[in-house]
Amino acid sequence: MLKAAHPERPDALTWAFLGLGVLLLPVGFYLALSAPPDVNQGYLARIMYLHVPGAWLGYLAFFVTFLYSLLYLFRQDPRYDRVAMASAEIGLVFMGLALVTGMLWARPTWGVYWTWEPRLTTTAILFAVYVGYFLLRGAIEDPELRAKAAAAVGVLGFINVPISYMSVKWWRSLHQTQSIDLTTGKIHMDPAMLQALLFNLLVFTLLYLGFVRFRALVAALEARKEEA
């Protein structure tokens, strides 16, 4: 995801990702709306075509941030930092989308907007960590220190994911008898639904790749402007 020395405008690959993503987005939307309604949840299940890709890409984006933060810490190349930042920013958008759609789905299904289920809690913690990531970036003016500090948060924040998941799972298991399994009704999926979901996932991935490359370029231009 790294680019040549001094690019001025997005390269062909970035345009290809973005163009394909934007072109296929209406197709994914059509597939989602024409997929058969769920036996139990009816039309409500369609929120999943937005929710699942959002959540998956949120996690993927933060994982990419983790990788590039590690790379930055060992190589000290500002390009790695820019990709890490770009990915975290896009990840925050996707994760926010997943959280909001999840809540909208949970209210009619479970009767509440929020429940302290391990996956939900872990996601919320992760979201808070990356909000902190950007507050930290905003607070530091020296670019090198900013990159280092952000990289440390990017690494620690992602290491924290399995730890949070484990602790919340155990925390819940002690006193709460009622437990909601998010995967119910989603494992046995109609081929048409699965198709639509996978297609939307592909579209979102294309958009993610395009956005990250684009954002990293913008960050590179900003950095050059700052130096000049």
């Binding site: 902190g132 930290l136 220190l145 602790s167 919340v168």
Partner: peptide, 29 residues
Amino acid sequence: LLARLRGREVLLPLLLFSLVVPVVLAGVR
């Protein structure tokens, strides 16, 4: 990490609390 920054008093709890949720949860339990 934050020692040399201005506004560290606000930033520190903000970064810290979301990260140490597991410790607090396990400790409370």
